[in-house]
Design a binder for these strands. Structure first.
Lengths: 133, 133
DNA sequence: CTTGACCTTCCCCCAACTGGAACCTTGACA
DNA sequence: TGTCAAGGTTCCAGTTGGGGGAAGGTCAAG
């Protein structure tokens, strides 16, 4: 249960093996190696991988994940440092949502005006071409 | 007013010159060339660029832009073809918004529980590490 | 002894640009 | 005429976060 191959840890952490190799490549994890060259994943590696999986699923960048992981490992961290990263990310998420909502509003507006039949008249194309009509 | 250099058309279309060169590279526009090798942009090139700028601002992929531009140029198009692309894109935007809202909900939940002071106790890290607490 | 399922490294590919190097052209000014 | 800055040109590399696939090593089962 403690030492896993990449395939086993991939299943348990629910991450592609490719992704795990990539995370080692960029220094997020450092699994041991067996005499045959195979990676050996300890519990601690598995925990880091699940941590990374969740953080990525929440949209944190790899660099944020690196920082969060370091804070996670640091018993003397200040929770303020973690919260600051989370708040910054929340702000970015809000900005993206706002952008997408604006796009959606504009495009659904144009789309509603387009009857979508066999004729060439198209308010969507007119809107894109800049006709104020 | 009709023939522009890349710098001039970049200003008017509000696009970086680099982006315009890239659009030529991938065949979205085909400006003429002067005897000195400089690109020469006609009105029609300018119109295509503003069209592309707007379509990209609405989040359409380059390939969607290529298709939309072809439809724009095609007088015998069916508006249904345009509308189909728009509707598909709207659905994708909606999916992204939903994803981001879910991330936001989870993360703001965790963040609210974190007092964010100098102490190490941090519900955000606990949440990321998978503690059901 | 071979087969199939693993594992390894390596390199290229994706979107949609952006930055920078090295070099050419043009117009203005001394 | 020399030169300088501000344009233009091409080409190459890097970005994010991996994915696809080749070429080859390893291991357990039959």
């Amino acid at each position: 249960m403690t030492n896993l191959t990449i395939g086993e840890v991939a299943k348990r952490a629910n991450l592609p093996a490719k992704t795990i190799r990539y995370y080692e490549d960029i220094g997020l994890i450092t699994p041991l190696r067996d005499s045959n060259g195979y990676r050996v994943f300890r519990e601690s590696d598995f925990h880091k991988l699940t941590f990374l999986g969740r953080a990525r699923a929440l949209g944190f960048t790899i660099e944020d994940c690196r920082t969060l992981l370091a804070l996670y490992e640091d018993d003397s961290r200040a929770s303020a440092d973690v919260k600051a990263i989370a708040q910054k990310h929340l702000t970015e998420i809000e900005a993206k949502i706002t952008d997408l909502q604006a796009m959606h509003a504009t495009l659904s507006d144009l789309s509603q005006k387009c009857c979508g039949d066999a004729r060439p008249d198209c308010p969507i194309l007119e809107g894109l071409s800049g006709q104020t009509n």
